[in-house]
């Protein structure tokens, strides 16, 4: 029975809509089967898996935004962050287990703009941004961030002038990148908490710039 091994075949594309339920159920079931067997064999416990799910849920782009806002407010911290990010993050109270991949922080300026991709899969600074968004993992982004970075940024609403040099950084299992966006003009006098609200997830990937003023409250 090769069907068990390869999973049910389907002609639907990678989009989530229109996928047949059978295939959806198959991989949900496979995940459950793997966990059940690993637990039964004593390889891991359900508690460990649940705790990791909770830990992942708790990590959001607010972590990265806090780091960026501090760097905008404190030149000494910014210098330390660029030189030795892991040590600087510990200063802010981030707990980073030994298994955490290395991190590089790259600064966007008026002259240079960095864009982060993982062409091989989906490596991402999860410790600061949480799980990567769907589009970051998409085949289209993985190929076009390299061939057409300006076009990709345009799709996200960012039109860079020709004079700005674009550097595309390809993440690996061992080295992740966080973009330190350029601080928007007219934000002098803002507190760190106010600044952090300007720092969007996408601006720390490099597909957009930070907001220029606080987002209006809904309603």
């Amino acid at each position: 029975m090769s069907e068990h091994h390869d999973g049910p075949q389907s002609h639907s594309g990678p989009a989530h809509s229109g996928m047949d339920d059978a295939r959806l159920d198959y991989y949900a079931r496979l995940t459950q089967a793997l966990e059940d067997l690993l637990v039964a064999k004593g390889v891991c416990t359900r508690r460990e898996v649940q705790q990791e799910m909770d830990r992942m849920d708790a990590r959001t782009p607010a972590g990265g935004a806090r780091v960026v806002a501090r760097a905008w407010s404190d030149a000494g911290f910014k210098a330390r962050l660029l030189a030795d990010p892991m040590t600087a993050l510990k200063e802010l109270g981030f707990s980073l287990p030994d298994t955490t991949p290395r991190l590089a922080v790259v600064e966007n300026t008026h002259r240079v703009h960095h864009l982060v991709v993982c062409t091989l899969c989906s490596c991402y600074p999860r410790m600061l941004l949480g799980r990567p968004p769907d589009w970051y993992k998409s085949l289209a982004y993985r190929s076009r961030a390299v061939t057409d970075p300006r076009g990709v940024m345009r799709e996200f609403g960012l039109e860079l002038s020709e004079g700005v040099e674009v550097r595309v950084l390809d993440s690996t299992a061992d080295l992740r990148y966080l973009v330190l966006p350029h601080r928007p003009a007219g934000t002098q006098g803002m507190t760190e908490a106010q600044l952090a609200k300007l720092v969007t997830r996408d601006s720390m990937i490099g597909v957009t710039e930070p907001l220029h003023s606080e987002p209006a409250r809904a309603g």
Binding site: A15, H16, Y27, A28, T31, Q32, L34, E35, L38, C44, E48, V49, Q50, E52, M53, M56, D57, V117, T119, L120, R131, P133, D134, W135, S138, L139, A140, Y141, R142, S143, R144, A145, V146, T147, V152, E155, F156, D170
Partner: peptide, 30 residues
């Protein structure tokens, strides 16, 4: 995929993760 010819637009719709998706992610880390 880096540099593959592609003109596909980036689909920016983000879906809410299902329980099993969060689970397979966590299982890998554990």
């Amino acid at each position: 995929r880096g540099g593959w010819p592609s003109e596909e637009l980036i689909n920016r719709i983000e879906h809410q993760l299902a329980d099993w998706e969060r689970r397979i992610d966590a299982l890998n880390v554990v």
